[in-house]
Design a protein around this nucleic acid. Structure first.
Lengths: 347, 347
DNA sequence: TCACTAGGTCCTGTCAAAAGG
DNA sequence: CCCTTTTGACAGGACCTAGTG
């Protein structure tokens, strides 16, 4: 096992200089008072190449008291659902950090138990939180003074927050449907397996109600239950209550509704229009015809990463930002004017 | 931020003993040749409590030459596809490691560039590879002597491997369909965006051919192209060539085929039977009626984690295991006997 | 043998100081 | 004594082997 790992002094002796010189060259500390002759520099770099030297990050962190490690917390619950937006968020976080050499980004996947801190045993220089972590973990982050960015969650006085504007998104949806002529609009709420108390759930639901109300429309019964059986839901809303449009909380709901519709021999958008909240990638892969509201997960990832970079670059001025990203309507083929049949049936 | 971090010698001087004594007491190294008087032990524990001492894990790992960090590599490509089996695999890996306190498991999400090692800069005690990593990274792992487990990929002489038995799985599929009476069986291959050269792609395809051949059946044209347009595929196989059953590479294919079928007004399983390879969770969430072959991703995750634990516990005997897990047929509602109409049309 | 401790080890970063011209 | 280039010693925190009274 423990074959000798190449370390700084190996490189130094191989290049015929001292450890400190190697260290200074590798860390680009030249310029402010320090200089190296070109041939020495070249010799050192060759030795590094030849021995395949990789600095030991443990020792480095121990010495510098900084790790340049960013931990993404909450992966185990945020990535549990199939094809949810966090996957796209993480991809774009890493994309940004990949332009910044030397910063490592790790995703924590531990199953969070209530009342136990789930920070890595390591010192981390920053944390990006997907939706939420338990109280104990968040408390510990603050005690350690780790700068945080919360994505799609809320902790404004202790961290920066980046989240989608679900209120505005739902307004877009209702606007779109009413412009098409829909008056009986149902809402398929999140299934109960969703994160409890997630703000998106509350925002979308309450805005559904207020927007309908502001247009003088009645909500369709069924909006305030979590969606468990899509077939039952469609029978209740579209068949019994003559809803002509259904708004789905997320794309998994939409997908299940589409399949249930086929079983019930309801055609989309002929018998009812369907629209949901999700990101572009998900619809492209799973159901390219779906009309949806883009939650801008790409942008959320990018912006969070940039805020974190700002934190890292000047650690003293930890000014928290609270960013709300407008959502975007993407019209495809599952929404249309209510058909004559529907309009006829309704009367 | 607090300048003074409490360290071992703070505790030592506060308790009036040496650092080593504190260390041994805290690490429970008593017993084999080492003892402490009870009152000293008590004083030390009180000092720890009083100063709120937390051992610095960086220093600890540096000294012990072990980090207790397991890295899951390949997350960026393996988790890219929606709802593929790796998500379930990772969940079950972490589930196993959570029973072992002190082990951290992190998922690498960096975007892999060819020819560049993508190992984290810090030392890791083990690596679990999802499907594959680039050659350079794997080479580096071996050079560093990091024990590896490859999931759903192949590297038998340099690591342990855990993979599903795709040959046996495809045999189950063909057996199931022929028993139902199908004779014209099409195969919807993986889309080109899939990992190139993935063994599952080759295994499923070649077994499709050999199994049909052994039963005296002809393959249906279209099996050897990657699936790009589901509608075109169904028109070619089911409509033109009168296939009565379609085997899909994965559940995303199956999902797209189902939607295309609805657009073409083909009913499942009346007009054709549909079956795919995937895991249970995916079908439950996305399409609960689908007949499928369970790739046992849960088992794959658990077994990989257990092999890794064995590696960690006795580091010297790194004996590589090669585990192939039998797949399981789960019959639901998308496969049935070919309908009379189909049988009539065929003649 | 008991009860404990000194000092080296892991590896890198930094700074005062020295060498060479 | 100055300037450029390089170095040695130590910090950082915990672990562990060898050793003391």
């Amino acid at each position: 096992m423990s074959k000798t790992v190449v370390n700084l002094s190996d490189v130094a002796s191989h290049a015929g200089v001292s450890k400190s010189t190697v260290s200074r060259v590798l860390n680009n500390k030249l310029g402010n008072g320090f200089t190296v002759r070109n041939d020495v520099k070249k010799r050192i770099l060759e030795a590094v190449e030849h021995l395949n030297y990789k600095p030991n990050l443990l020792a480095k962190s121990l010495a510098k008291q900084r790790t340049k490690m960013i931990s993404v917390l909450g992966g185990s619950h945020a990535l549990r659902d199939l094809g949810n937006i966090y996957q796209c968020v993480i991809n774009n976080i890493t994309k940004v950090f990949n332009t910044q050499p030397g910063i490592d980004i790790i995703v924590d996947m531990s199953h969070h138990k209530p009342g136990v801190s789930h920070l890595p045993a390591w010192k981390i220089d920053g944390a990006i939180i997907l939706a939420q972590v338990n109280d104990r973990t968040f408390e510990e982050l603050n005690k350690r003074g780790v700068p945080c960015v919360v994505i799609n969650g809320s902790m404004p006085d202790k961290s920066s927050c980046v989240k989608p504007n679900d209120v505005q998104g739902m307004k877009l949806v209702v606007e779109h449907l009413t412009e098409l002529g829909h008056q009986r609009i149902a809402y398929a709420n999140a299934p109960s397996t969703r994160l409890d108390g997630h703000q998106s759930v509350a925002d979308r639901h309450s805005t559904y109600l207020t927007e309908l109300d502001s247009k003088g429309l009645e909500p369709i019964d069924g909006h305030d239950f979590s969606l468990e059986c899509s077939e039952k839901f469609l029978r209740k809303t579209v068949v019994d209550q003559k809803a002509t449009a259904v708004i789905a909380y997320g794309h998994m709901n939409a997908l299940n509704l589409m399949q249930a519709a086929h079983r019930l021999e309801l055609a989309i958008p002929n018998d009812f229009s369907l629209i949901c909240f999700c990101d572009e990638y998900a619809t492209d892969v799973m159901s390219p015809n779906l009309t949806f509201v883009d939650l801008q997960s790409k942008k959320m990832g990018e912006i969070s990463a940039e805020i974190m970079l700002a934190y890292l670059n000047n650690r003293d001025s930890l000014q928290h930002k609270n960013i709300v990203i407008d959502e975007k309507l993407v019209v495809r083929k599952t929404t249309a004017k209510p058909s004559k049949l529907q309009r006829f049936l309704k009367n």
